[in-house]
């Protein structure tokens, strides 16, 4: 059932111009950034060669591209997620899913899987760019794998937050703005709150605050460090918001 719903989401996503526009814009921006970084790298390459342990091309070209991609997802995911629940509620098509013999968890997880498979396309396109460099140089595949995993985890937590925002209102635009606002608030507050808590020596609250700081969890993996706590935090954030979305939709059925 989850795959049926995910397939339907993916199919309807690609019948709208929004999905194609998102793919285009993301790819143009990332492509430009990637080429610019590559150009810069080629210029400083001779100076880098004189350093004792110079940073490689993966670190200097691929990593910033992934960081840009993370920022692009911040805009793209709420826009894509608003279609999934808020727009279906406005068009009253959600009734088809609610009347079908499908549990609320399956509906939300199906939509999440649909959104994630679309984001997987973006991640693969991002990955394709550094992989092209394989033709001319040697890449740090460990770092590249870490970056890709980090971007996927980030996409998952953004999607969960976006879907929850989408379940809060029947106005798609409001849902997109709400999702965007929630993500931004989490980025800023998670960051500063975590830092100030740690500065006061409050380790446990600081560790808790890290759950709500998706970018902080992105960093270690983005540097090639497999930080299991950061991975756990990402997964926890994703699961928490998916459960909130399920509860929210079920609350509508219970309370009307």
């Amino acid at each position: 059932m989850i795959f049926t719903i995910a397939g339907k989401e993916l199919r309807t996503l690609f019948t709208s111009p929004l999905a194609w526009l998102v793919l285009t814009v993301v790819q143009v921006v990332l492509g430009y950034g990637f080429l610019k970084r590559l150009d810069d790298f080629l210029q400083v390459q001779s100076q880098l060669a004189q350093m004792a342990s110079p940073p490689g091309i993966t670190e200097l070209v691929a990593a910033p591209t992934y960081a840009t991609a993370a920022a692009m997802l911040l805009f793209a995911v709420p826009l894509l997620a608003m279609r999934m629940i808020a727009e279906e509620r406005r068009n009253q098509t959600l009734t088809l899913l609610l009347s079908a013999p499908v549990s609320m968890s399956e509906i939300v997880l199906g939509k999440f899987a649909g959104l994630m498979s679309f984001l997987l396309i973006i991640v693969l396109l991002v990955l394709a760019m550094p992989l092209l460099l394989m033709t001319g140089t040697r890449l740090d595949f460990g770092l590249l794998a870490g970056l890709t995993l980090a971007l996927l985890l980030l996409a998952a937590s953004f999607s969960a937050v976006g879907l929850y925002a989408s379940s809060l209102t029947a106005q798609p635009m409001a849902a997109a703005l709400l999702g965007f606002g929630m993500l931004l608030a989490m980025l800023f507050m998670g960051e500063t709150a975590g830092d100030s808590l740690r500065a006061r020596g409050w380790q446990v609250p600081a560790a808790f605050a890290q759950v709500f700081s998706p970018l902080k969890n992105f960093e270690p993996l983005g540097r090639g460090i497999i930080d299991s706590y950061a991975i756990a935090c990402s997964l926890l954030l994703t699961a928490a918001f998916l459960i909130l979305a399920i509860r929210r939709l079920d609350g509508r059925r219970l309370r009307g």
Binding site: S103, S105, E106, L109, A239, I246
Partner: peptide, 14 residues
Amino acid sequence: PILGIFDAYYKTAC
């Protein structure tokens, strides 16, 4: 297994 986690939570909650 995946759904189980969600539904188990969800049943106790809702």
